[in-house]
Amino acid sequence: MGILEVKGVGKRFGGLQALGDVNLSVQENTVHAIIGPNGAGKSTLLNCLVGKLIPDTGSVTFDGNSVLGRKPHEINQMGISRVFQTPEIFGDLTVMENVLIPCFAKRDGAFRMHAYESIEQEPDIVNKAEQMLIDVNMIEKRHMTGSSLSRGDKRRLEMAMCLAQDPRLLLLDEPTAGMARADTNNTIDLLKQIKEERDITMAIIEHDMHVVFSLADRITVLAQGTPLVEDTPDNIKGHPKVKEAYLGETQEV
């Protein structure tokens, strides 16, 4: 039984069957990659997991509890954090403040005023935020505003914000999309480091096979809304069906 169980999930947009009958089981403390050509339904599936979309059929359970019908912030409170394809950070706030916010927001999501004390009066939280920035190697940029960062830095900042919450499951939507090779490699190293240091499960949606094969423990190939095959990276590489649907025409592996 995996930490995240997706059973028979289907989603239809008008006449388009975006997801057919998706079954997926993500095991705890592994990196599970979901790959597939454009329009395969990867992002739709991810949106169903975080509560942005509600699937028409099927069930999604996280750690035994259904996530369907819950609001995004409630799903996050269960321990699922998401890194977006276009980084969602607080552009008007400084890098430090960006990380301070998830540090203040405790897992229960309860409303806390904190209106009278100043931020400096909470050394635990400040230290934790600083540590997060050191982890993603962004501590020198802590006084810059979010919107002035480069795309790669924004992504790293977003990852730091997600990790500051100590999530059990981290969902990454194309974490290296639109990045230069060097930035991509940095991101891979960062993710590897996260995987080693923490008890964390990751689900990655990715186009870049280099990223997928250097990180994933298991890979699910999605095509036209249905999973073609699920296996280890080594087996996927040689799988004839996958080659036919996806790899063969895009990239030599």
Partner: peptide, 17 residues
């Protein structure tokens, strides 16, 4: 700070629980 964060990006607030 939270209020400024609301102004800046509500989506991120939601996905941060």
């Amino acid at each position: 700070m939270m209020l400024r964060a609301v102004k800046s990006n509500q989506t991120r607030m939601n996905y941060m629980g």
